[in-house]
Design a protein around this nucleic acid. Structure first.
Lengths: 363, 363
DNA sequence: CTGAAAGCGCTTACAG
DNA sequence: CTGAAAGCGCTTACAG
């Protein structure tokens, strides 16, 4: 039988009585006072029972926990946040949710954050929308920290966070002029590596599917790619560049516009991310009827599982998500715990490595 | 020049002084009291200025807003939640984040919720983990409502929510024995329709790639499919059923195990969701070297964009995400605003429609 | 170890 | 329309 708590001044009756008539819904919340009364202790002790590390005799804790269980007491973290100025919540602002890579990034963050005792407040920023708006909403909510990925941010908003002591960590993206801690893949180095790889595979004319023109990620990859080819003696006219907007559809459209027929095709196509490379593969195989790698080489960046499937067999550069997420959370932790930030903003750069598959055969 | 707020008793200095020395970081938060002092009004008026619909003279509001802007004041929603017992946050519990369909569902909910002034607290439930645990975490946080998709839930946890007056809406999933509002696709009807379609296309032997055995979604689709075929006179031995776990990899492995060579292939394969159907396509085309639809028919369910790409051209059943999300939010709203819940738990069933593409040609 | 008390930053009757 | 005051449900010095 359920413990009778009527004498505690709470109302408890279920939604419907025996006859099936509607009864007012019980919305009374059980507070620490109720538990205290039932356990015969002070409210402060109840609070202590739910605060790891606070001093409380084992017997008392036991008794309190039992009473709490009896009443289905769940501590109100809103109230506790008001005291501690800690919400145990981290905001994750994601720009490019259409890219499976960022879906995986999101998941990795959520899992890792959960394991560290944080909730995740996810914000997606629609392509047209400004992340500044998102950040302001985030700030009302008093999150403990913010992780920003694939999105722009104004200087003013960044300092808004800084003024409030809310750490901001950039993921795979840096903002020129803002001294913010960053974790990112070595995009420039990856681009270079891909240039060398494609050159070594025999390609002499190239096309690059570029991503978000506002993001540094695409820009760095493209620049690294171009530089390594230039170093090999390729003339810049032999490296074509296509705006493809980071998406499958954007890349598909770009391919359609630039390569309506197979004659114009270059020796190799570098998709600055995997989904764009996959779009190129689809266009080449299914519309142009050409073979990869026999007629054209195609390579991507990210190593999303979709590209590894047998239908694509995409040769690409790996971005080690888990390692990057771990680094990012470490930086966030540093920010959370160190009062004055060290003067040099931290930048952690994770290398990317080549994943050989079918669209560029291993030499 | 920035307004001087030193006399307000706040500390404001930047991180580093002129010499570049570290200074204590300013973590002082500006509160409604600070704004009140600056504007020369009561703290209550400041609160009113930020509460739509509360009575306040336009001039006073103006003055307050100006002062707030000057101080970079952002109201603390934690404090306000403590009063109103409303967090303006909805929890979204998602089970199957590996399925692009649910990624889209998540996005649709986040956008819609955002437009209605809610934050979204997303919880992913890892395959092994229990959603009950997730819900308990959610409850500490005092969310206003919960949307549960692709995950199981115990009766005890459901009543925990009910006791607290926190509405729970099930998305594309119902829990036998629990009277909870539900929005779902007509999975059974869709399954039936697909059975008829494949039969009409000439198929007489079938294989079904089944999803999560614990979920009702897969179960209903399979049952509808089987029933319609039985009605057409197909014997049950001609309808094979494969456990494929709702994922691409699971379906690929199931195909590999059951159809190591092309001889055994049935006339038609029904993937209970699109990614499983896509896995079947990949296996058949790239491993078995057979053609679709010439050698086998393949169909899916969901109509994710990936299946519509030229590489697949998957014939499938559409699940209208936006309509379903809208319905779900309507139900949630009803629950949020109606004190006593209407006695019959609401169930909204959205029909699915056939999307003709290449893997099953239109008759 | 434990309780009484102040306080976190708001909202909202209650009087004017 | 507006202010003083109580209170939301906790945490945390402060004394014992």
């Amino acid at each position: 039988m359920r413990f009778d708590i009527a004498h505690l001044g709470l109302f408890t009756y279920s939604n419907r009585d025996e006859a099936g008539e509607l009864m007012p819904r019980n919305k009374t919340t059980v507070t620490s006072h109720d538990v205290a009364r039932l356990a015969g202790v002070s409210q402060a002790s109840v609070s202590r029972a739910f605060t790891p590390g606070s001093s409380l005799s084992p017997e008392k804790r036991e008794k309190i926990l039992k009473a709490a269980d009896q009443l289905d007491y769940i501590p109100n973290s809103i109230a506790s946040s008001l005291n501690t100025a800690r919400t145990n919540t981290v905001a994750l602002v994601i720009g490019d949710i259409d890219n499976p890579f960022y879906v995986r990034v999101q998941r990795a963050f959520m899992t890792a954050l959960q394991n560290r005792g944080y909730q995740t407040l996810t914000f997606t920023v629609e392509p047209e929308a400004s992340p500044d708006e998102a950040i302001r909403r985030v700030l009302r909510f008093r999150v403990d920290g913010i992780i920003l990925t694939a999105a722009q941010l104004s200087t003013r908003t960044a300092s808004l966070c800084e003024d409030r002591g809310i750490p901001l960590v950039l993921f795979n993206r840096y903002i020129p002029g803002l001294e913010l801690p960053v974790v990112r893949c070595d995009n420039f180095g990856g681009g270079k590596l891909m240039g060398q790889t494609l050159y070594a595979a025999g390609a002499r004319t190239f096309s690059v599917l570029k991503g978000d023109p506002l993001g540094t990620t695409s820009k760095d990859r493209v620049e690294g790619f171009q530089m390594s080819l230039l170093e090999q003696g390729i003339r810049s006219e032999a490296i074509e560049t296509l705006e493809a907007g980071s998406t499958y559809d954007g890349a598909f459209a770009a391919m359609e516009a630039r390569y309506p027929s197979a004659e114009d095709l270059p020796d190799a196509i570098f998709g600055v991310n995997d989904i764009m490379a996959m779009a190129a593969c689809d266009w080449i195989r299914h519309r142009l009827g050409k073979a990869i790698p026999a007629d054209v080489l195609v390579a991507g960046f990210d190593n999303i599982p979709e590209g590894g499937r047998i239908a694509y067999g995409l040769t690409t550069l790996e971005q080690p998500i888990d390692a990057m997420v771990t680094e990012a959370l470490e930086l966030l932790d540093d920010e959370l715990n160190e009062e004055p930030r060290s003067s040099i903003p931290t930048e952690r750069i994770v290398p990317s490595s080549l994943v050989w598959r079918d669209t560029v055969p291993r030499p």
